[in-house]
Design a protein around this nucleic acid. Structure first.
Lengths: 205, 205
DNA sequence: ATTCTAATTAGATACACATCTAATTAGAAT
DNA sequence: ATTCTAATTAGATGTGTATCTAATTAGAAT
């Protein structure tokens, strides 16, 4: 339904994104015209006009009224207004795009920096078992990407459990040798907290 | 100026008549994004996104905010609304097309059915002189086209003068042998009037 | 200073589509 | 019935443009 609306909007723009068709609409806004007349006005051949009118009619932007042999086309005023009113508040635009998209970039980062069996497939799942062969390939240089990995790493710890520093190091080492850096970053990024040498993960990530 | 506005409107539609760009706007309506993120979300390469963003920025539909190395793009909400409000009433559309167009088709008909020196060049001018070599090639079959020729023919008579039938025939014969048909049609189309065997042209054409 | 990262620009390719000519259809006029 | 007219459909051609890869720029991080 969102998708449907998006496609409708898109085809609407596609139809109007053409000089000849836009002019046709402008002319028809003044008075109804035959194909031949439009061809003369726009200095195009009849088949071309027919082609454009067909596209405009698909979207109900014009109506046709046969008169003898000639087809008189007229602007469908309501259709134009409907579209212009309904659409185009930014909220509307925002609602047009599915919200699955938020994870796409983070998934890409995970895929780039974490190698092994299941890592990218469960970024928010339970912690992976120690026996698995998942490894962090390297430490991302950019803050934003490092944060993505950190969030994943924090997820390897369970909420509500207090870990002594030794165990924290051990768990991190399953994924990357430089446990000191990661441990420091986990604290700095506020994804985990420390007090009296004991570490715990915050409930909300 | 009208022309200017028309071109603006056209390029606006052209920019929005693209699936990727429309999606970009939808995403940016939710939150600002970097080029890389958009590329990941839409599964396109960065240069492609850059290309699209450039086009969107040309029309001020998006703004850019540099943050370190990354460029964060955000939707220009006002611009969107401005365009959607301002345009799109049918009157607006009607005003976009120049009004020279009305004569185009009639000129074409005149050119098709009248041969000779100056005919198509002065459809509304003074009457042509008898000595000229202007001729109506044939009588158009279709009502509408016949009316165009009739209007031109009526213009060969001066307003405010009473012509006896003999003179009417004579004048018509300068352009076409079948003066009876034309004379009858001039009356039938109300372009000229007759009373007691005297003809005169009506002031308003 | 040098290296790396994100973005942009340049250049190439491929697909979409606007327009044309030719052929066909539907309907009027004779 | 036949001929003519206006419109549409079919098919061909050329232009525009979305997308890609490769090269370049601008800026951060080391």
């Amino acid at each position: 339904m969102e998708q449907q609306e998006f496609q409708t909007l898109l085809s609407f723009f596609k139809v109007l994104a053409n000089e000849s068709r836009l002019k046709i609409l402008g002319i028809l806004a003044n008075r109804e015209c035959s194909v031949e007349e439009l061809a003369a006005i726009l200095k195009l051949k009849e088949p071309t006009i027919s082609h454009h009118l067909a596209k405009l009619k698909e979207l109900n932007l014009v109506n046709m009224r046969p008169d003898g042999n000639t087809h008189l086309y007229q602007l469908n005023t309501e259709a134009l207004q409907d579209i212009s009113k309904e659409i185009f508040t930014p909220d509307k635009m925002a609602s047009l795009v599915g919200d699955v998209e938020g994870e796409a970039w983070e998934n890409k980062v995970l895929k780039n920096y974490i190698e092994g069996d299941g890592a990218p497939r469960r970024p928010e799942g339970e912690r992976n078992f120690s026996a698995s062969s998942i490894r962090i390939k390297e430490i991302p240089a950019s803050r934003k990407k490092r944060l993505v990995i950190l969030k994943w790493l924090a997820n390897q710890f369970e909420v509500g459990i207090n870990y002594p520093e030794l165990q924290v190091n051990e768990i991190i080492k399953h994924y990357h040798p430089d446990c000191a850096t990661w441990r420091r970053e986990l604290i700095g990024s506020q994804l985990m907290h420390r007090e009296n040498g004991v570490y715990w993960r915050l409930p909300k990530v």
